[in-house]
């Protein structure tokens, strides 16, 4: 069992949790993820590592409570335990040589997975900027954390409540138009947002790294549920990724595959109380 040592509500949809998992914390690198399970009969759900503390032996995850399992997790508090927590999974991010300036573009809880990547780059002496997008001000996450090592922290909200009115891509396009030269863009967020970032960067051929979030079961390469098409080739996101060259990802296929279990996901979410009772009865 893996103990929750800190929990913070970030906005009306997301929360942050720091969980004791010394073996994961000892080994993890930027770009990797974990799979966790809540309860003896719970689902396995993948979550990207947001931050880690090797000395304390903890991993920080940022979670959007969107369905059955994430809502079950949200019910847990400091001192409670998650049943299973396995990782680090996936390949660590491989940074290209000779990078001078990199910008992270994140939407929603994508701020968490972008954070360790930019931080690792900053530690190597690369100049880093970040563009954080959110529907409203409350959904703009981790701006203060990024400020500790980013040259510029740009903010965009759909309603203009904070920063630029518009999307992360609005800001990115402006910066490119203004002549800022980025050697790489790291985009993480909803698939539609990553697809739109690539639309901006592709004409300029700016290398764009994305972190894909297909449906996963085991996360160790044994089922292929998370397969994606990159440059015409089938890849398993859990072992070949989750980072891929965004300019060559088939985003439309990924979006279709994410809808595979939409109906079933909605059903368990709506019947959560009854299902939880049944699961408890089985223990």
């Amino acid at each position: 069992m893996y103990k929750i040592v800190r929990k913070e509500t970030l906005n009306d949809a997301a929360f942050e949790m720091e969980i004791e998992a010394p073996m994961v914390a000892r080994k993890c690198e930027a770009g990797q993820f974990v799979i966790l399970r809540v309860g003896e009969d719970g689902e396995r759900i993948p979550l990207t590592i947001g931050d880690f503390d090797r000395e304390k032996g903890t991993i920080t995850i940022v979670v959007q409570a969107v369905g059955f399992s994430t809502k079950q997790l949200e019910k847990l508090g400091v001192g409670d335990e998650v049943t299973d927590f396995v990782g680090p999974l996936g390949r660590p991010t491989e940074f290209h040589d000779g990078l001078k300036r990199v910008v992270g573009v994140c939407g929603g809880i994508g701020a968490a997975p972008v954070y360790p990547q930019l931080k690792a780059l900053a530690e190597k002496g690369v100049k880093v900027d970040v563009i954080i997008g959110g529907r409203e001000a409350q959904y703009v996450l981790w701006a203060d954390k990024f400020k500790t090592f980013c040259d510029h922290v740009y903010i965009a909200t759909d309603n203009g409540e904070l920063g630029t009115k518009g999307f992360g891509t609005t800001v990115l396009q402006q910066l490119i138009d203004d002549g800022v030269k980025f050697d790489e863009v790291i985009a993480i967020g909803p698939v539609i947002m990553m697809k739109n970032v690539v639309k901006v960067t592709k004409p300029y051929n700016i290398p764009t790294s994305v972190s894909l979030n297909p449906i996963m079961v085991d996360g160790t390469g044994m089922c292929g549920c998370c397969r994606v098409t990159v440059d015409g080739q089938t890849k398993f996101a859990c072992v070949d990724g989750p980072d891929f060259d965004g300019l060559n990802v088939d985003f439309d296929e990924l979006m279709e595959r994410q809808r595979f279990f939409k109906k079933e996901e909605k059903y368990v979410d709506e019947h959560a109380d009854r299902i939880c009772d049944l699961m408890r009865g089985a223990e």
Partner: peptide, 21 residues
């Protein structure tokens, strides 16, 4: 492997009484 893992390991045959579809 995916199909059988969902059914056997995750008890998908009991869906929706177990959450893995």
């Amino acid at each position: 492997n995916e199909f059988l893992t969902r059914v056997n390991l995750m008890k998908g045959y009991m869906f929706p009484d177990r959450p893995t579809p």
